[in-house]
Amino acid sequence: MMKNILRALNAENTENQRKIVSFGDSSLVEAPGGRIWTFASIAFLLLLWILSGTFGWVNPLFWPPIGDVWHQLNVIASEGYRNATLLEHIGISVYRVLMGFLLGCMVGIPLGFALALSKVMNRIFDPIVEFFRPMPPLALIPLVILWLGIGESAKIFLLFLAALWIMALATRSGALSTNIAKVYAAYTLNANKRQILFRIILPNALPEIFTGMRVSMGVCWGTVVAAELVAAESGIGMMIMVASKFLSTDIVVLGVILISLVAYAIDIFMRIMEVRLIPWRGKSS
């Protein structure tokens, strides 16, 4: 039985099994199957963690034993932390990330198209985008707190900024990559400007917009934790910050792992959506 499970985990489609040249063929790397290596690597890391705790290889202050973290998870999951349940902490962080991300998309994507499609818009917005883009949102925290206080809107605004520039640039790059022959062809096939935008340029830019979404989602997670570290009554970042003040490394590590898991789950969701929504990705003829 074990053998069958292993075989199923390692299964590849037959087309790929027949390939002789494998090094450099990306379709082989991305093909289904080979999950056994994923499980092996996770198992190895967990084992290392368990052993290092059991044999006291590292000072628990620097890295707690797995049992401590598990214990904290149970405690916090049942009793909550600082006047909020664990789910509330996770929920508020997710809420902030999603709000900032969505607002960033709603402004960034049209801005990216404007940058790519209109010379005047390009000349107006290009310096603005290029000026703000390299600025880490965290450096703006003091200003944003002055403007918007320490409430939700300040944090969401920071996340919005984090997503905005990435989305604008990804969209611009995607729109600019449109093969002019496709645009010409569409014009000779009755299309007007609006149809060219929505039926040619937009679908052409979608793969890069999606990449931008995944990148900005990652950046938003980094930013939300940092923003919550500075000023928040709730959220995973706040949990990490308070715990670190009390040297409760186990809670810090728990928080880090929870964030990674949630962010990873969202990324997997986005990858699935990507395959569903843009099957033509990378297939331009």
Partner: peptide, 25 residues
């Protein structure tokens, strides 16, 4: 009308949608 050397098909549309693009627009 124009037929290009290559790369002018809309790869996000099916064959049918490509062919009917002109009449639909």
């Amino acid at each position: 009308g124009m037929v290009f050397q290559q790369g002018a098909l809309f790869e996000w549309m099916s064959v049918e949608k490509n062919v009917s693009f002109g009449p639909r627009m």
